[in-house]
Amino acid sequence: MSPTKITLVRPTRATLLAMAIVALTLATSQAADLDEQDAVAVPPSQRFDNGRFGAVGQRLHEWNVVVGAGAMYAPKFEGSDEFEVRPIPVISARIGDRIGIDPTGLTVDVLQSNGFTLSVKGGYEMGRSEDDSDHLRGLGDVDAGAAIGGKLSYQVGPAELYASIDKTIGGSEGLVGKLGANVSQRYDRFILSAGASATLADDNHMESYFGVTSEQSARSGLRQYDAGAGLKRFDVEASVTYMATENWLIRGQAGVGFLTGDAADSPIVQDDVQPSAMLMVGYKF
C-alpha cells in the first residue's frame, strides 16, 4: 500500500496577519483574567488601576467578539482561472458603539446622524506575489502596503447603502473606491444577507495589478499592456448564518466578481469571472 499524500496549502499573508490578531486578542483576554484571579493576593498598592486603565481589561463579551475558523475556495490571484482552498481564521470585535476591528483593519465611526454614518479606517493591501501562479512568473511582486480611507453609509431598515475610498501607502500607491448596497434579515435562527458593489481604481492600482511593462513582457512572454483608471469590477454575494446556539454560529458565503474595462482586457487576466465560496464556524462571546 502506497503512503497517503497530504497537500498543505501555504497560508497567505492575509491569513498570517489574521492569526496574529486572534492571538493578540486572546492574549489580552487571558491577561485580564489573570489580573482578576490575582487581585486577592496582591496588595492594593500594587494592583492594576482599573479606574484609569479599565478599558484594557474589558471582557470579550463586552467587545462583542466573534472568533472562528474556516476555509475559502477562491482564485489564486485576481483574474486567475486556477483555484485553491486556503484556511481562514476569523476575528471581529465591536468596541462600544463606534470602533470595529476585523482581519482587514480598524474602523472608527466619527459621525452618526439620521441613519448616516461617516467612518475612517486603517488597514492594509496585501499586494501580489509572482510565486502565486506560474502565469505570474516574470511580472515581479506587487508589494504590500498600508491603507487608509473613509466610508459613508446610510442605513434604512434592513438595507445599507455605502460609498468608500481607500488610499494605499506603499505597494501599488493606488486609490480604490467602492459603491455598494447590502441587505440583511433575520428569520428565527438564520441571518440572510446579500450585497452588490462596483469597484473603481486609479492608474497606479490598475497598472500595478493589470499592466505589463516592456521589461515584464520580455520576462513573462505576455504582451505589453497599459491599464488605465476606471471601473474595475462588479461583485455580488450572498451569505447564510445559522445560530446553532446563543454563542456558536455557522456561516456559508458565496459570491462572484466580474472584471471589466481595462482589467478584463489585461493579458494577466485568464478569466474575467471570479467566483468564490467560504464556510466557517465561529464562537460569539
Results as ranks from 00 to 15, higher is better:
D226M: 02
S133D: 15
G122N: 09
V120K: 00
A254L: 09
L26T: 05
A69Q: 01
K151R: 11
S214M: 10
G138C: 13
D143L: 13
A20K: 00
A39K: 07
R186I: 03
A181N: 09
R10N: 08
G257F: 14
L17N: 01
M19Q: 07
F77K: 00
N50Q: 11
L111M: 11
A198F: 12
F258L: 11
S193L: 06
G252N: 12
L24A: 13
G282H: 04
V9N: 08
A71P: 03
D235Y: 08
K5L: 14
D271V: 03
L179W: 02
S197Y: 08
D49K: 00
R59N: 13
R13F: 14
I148E: 09
F53R: 01
A163Q: 08
T104W: 10
G70C: 07
E160S: 07
Y162D: 11
P87M: 08
A23M: 06
S220W: 15
E237Q: 15
A18L: 09
V40E: 13
G170P: 05
H205V: 02
P103D: 06
M278K: 08
G51N: 05
V90E: 11
F53M: 00
N114Q: 12
I6K: 02
D262V: 00
Q112V: 06
M72T: 14
S197T: 02
G79H: 04
A32Q: 01
D226R: 02
I21G: 03
G145E: 15
